[in-house]
Design a binder for these strands. Structure first.
Lengths: 202, 202
DNA sequence: CGAATTCCATAGCGATCGTTGTAAAATTTC
DNA sequence: GAAATTTTACAACGATCGCTATGGAATTCG
């Protein structure tokens, strides 16, 4: 028994409209993007934005969540799909090199760059993104632990340090992409970074 | 024939007063730091700040210049002081691990983080910092070229890619420091990163 | 001393920030 | 068609932004 929704219908596709805020927050960050910028890019008025998405913070969090499921999904996908942990990390770095320099969207990673500058009022936003990055490092560490337990890494491997290393490389690639590095340059960086991986036991 | 300056003397030490803006911009970034934040931390009123330092942009640029000569000087110092290029880069990464996690000042590097989020009005500020980072990559590349010419690196070494790699590692370490990585963890990252260096000819 | 000069704090400028009150427009229900 | 409901655009809210006009306080010169 579903009845059609009453009242004036929304004049825009809520889901499709999320793309513009994503691109703006990605390029300029949370504080660098004003509500006026958002409404202008989306072609709607402020009350429509607030009715559909809540306030600026709520919209931002929804954008970040969605980013993780779309533009940012390559990371876990590469790690999950690989046959072994080593090629998983190698594929993840390679995918980052391509994604971070894709000309169809802003350079780098939204989660890394969108809230590095923050006033006192927006400290919770930067904290939200920080926690996501920290969780990602821990995810790396977990995968490396599994690999070590399975014999794919030497017993004494410091998986924590290795996880921080890979996270740093990814974040450095994001920064380099924003500074103008090319896809080929970042692919070289990705390849260089894998030199750290301990030789597989023969 | 120097005559004493007339008029009411300045009530604060201009040079010493620069530290507070440095720490604020370092922690919160250009747009995340308001003039009100600055004057409150410096203990002076807005007209005093504008008379002594010009507008917010001018103050920021002076802060960045000064940062390069003080907190950020470790980088070129480590590279310059080393006996060979390899230990130079190793020492630079090691110094970054220590400096970026020094509890006496904000984590990470001001040049990397202080203007990643920017509105249309402050695009020139982010561009200024970007150019400084790009210049730094080129400086890396120049040092690596010298090393290759001197036989310290194999003839076929892609020094450009290697420079981008080291820049990415440094920037990733800065990000990790801001996210809470410890000195020891970053020192491990620095050590890992040097695994890329080609074996010296015997 | 008075005059000139320089810096100080108060207070407020216009612009923009994120957000919302109001009322008209557009739809479904009855 | 009338009532109910939801979205729309216009306009404006208080707060904060970067910045400055004004006038008093503190110093040196003559």
């Amino acid at each position: 028994m579903t009845t059609t929704k009453r009242g004036r219908p929304r004049s825009f596709d809520r889901d499709a409209a999320l793309l513009q805020p994503t691109l703006l927050f990605w390029q300029h960050g949370y504080e660098g993007t004003s509500v006026s910028d958002l409404t202008a890019a989306m072609g709607i008025s402020p009350p429509s934005l607030y009715a559909a998405f809540g306030d600026k913070r709520t919209l931002f969090v929804e954008v970040v969540d969605r980013y993780g499921d779309t533009f940012g999904a390559f990371m876990n996908k590469a790690l999950d799909d690989a046959s072994d942990t080593r090629t998983g990390f190698a594929g993840m770095l390679e995918a980052a090199a391509v994604s971070y320099t894709d000309p169809h969207h802003p350079a780098g990673c939204l989660v890394i760059t969108a809230a590095t500058n923050y006033s006192t009022q927006t400290a919770d936003i930067k904290e939200d993104l920080r926690e996501r990055r920290v969780a990602n490092v821990r995810s790396f560490e977990g995968r490396l632990n599994t690999a070590r337990a399975g014999g794919a890494l030497p017993e004494g491997t410091d998986t924590r340090a290795l996880a921080v290393y890979f996270a740093a490389v990814v974040q450095g690639m994001s920064q380099q992409a924003r500074d103008g590095a090319t896809t080929a340059e970042l692919q070289q960086v990705a390849e260089f970074a894998m030199a750290i991986w301990p030789e597989p036991a023969p």
